[in-house]
Amino acid sequence: MIDYLVLETNSLAGATVDSIQMHDIGSSIKVVQPGDSFIGTALRNATSQTLVLKSGVIWQGCSDDIPAVAKNYPICISEYGVFTDHPKLEHTYELLKSPIARGNKDLSIFVINPEHWKVIPETDEGVLSKIKSLTMPRYMNHKDDELIKEAIPPHDALYYGVLGTAALTLNYVSTILSRNVNANETFAYLFDEVAKYTNGLDTADKAFITELGEKTRSRVASLRDGLAKINGLIHDTD
């Protein structure tokens, strides 16, 4: 079993808790406000292996989906930039003068094992360069990215959305909070799935996410899911 810790940094914590409860029934979930360090906050609140999620991140898995090898590392974490290791797109961050570079880690979701830590950090700066970490696969963190908004064509955005149908995590927090979503992002992000977890949200957040879900559903969901079935990413439930 794995515990869950939700770092409440915005108004979307209810969606994260709702998603965990739906997919990992009976799991231990704790919601806290983070201090200056996400890692430090996690270590102060974790007693065993814990999946840490920033509020608004949707989890669609269970304890069995955490790679067994993650237990051997202090932390399992993913790259912040979705395309930083993409042979054709990685250079685009530099063209956009983006601060994102390979090696920047995404602290909106990570697995932490407190038994591997001797010191609780007061800040996250520089911490990850001093410890061993396991790279979290992208299917565990299907997240938003500035290239999708600004730099890639619709067919590539759609392909990213197809991959998202098999993802354990839907992580579009920054895009949702921005209240500024373009057509490419409705192709790439599964807002129609996120809209299933809005019961615990306030009226404004629920209405906005529901609207995004409808746009995604009407524009691309049938094509996206059809391509996912062809590629074996999802299966008919009939």
Rank of each mutant, 00 (worst) to 15 (best):
V6C: 10
N171G: 12
N72R: 12
I29H: 08
P153Y: 02
V127Q: 03
I152T: 05
S129H: 04
L43H: 06
V220I: 15
F187S: 00
I66M: 10
E214G: 03
L147G: 03
V31N: 05
Y189R: 09
K71N: 08
E90C: 13
T210D: 15
E125N: 08
K143M: 06
E79R: 14
P74T: 04
G81Y: 09
A151P: 02
I2Q: 04
I120A: 06
G164E: 12
A157G: 09
Y73M: 10
W59F: 11
N171R: 06
I148D: 00
L107H: 07
A157W: 00
H142M: 03
I120P: 05
L190T: 03
T41Y: 08
V6M: 13
L147V: 03
E211C: 06
K229M: 15
K229E: 14
L12V: 13
T9F: 10
Y80S: 08
K229I: 13
V52M: 06
K105I: 04
P114C: 02
I120E: 04
E115I: 04
S63R: 02
N113K: 01
A166S: 15
S133D: 01
I209V: 07
T16G: 14
V31W: 05
I148F: 00
D24P: 06
P154G: 10
D124Q: 02
G226K: 10
H23T: 10
D202S: 09
D3K: 14
S78D: 15
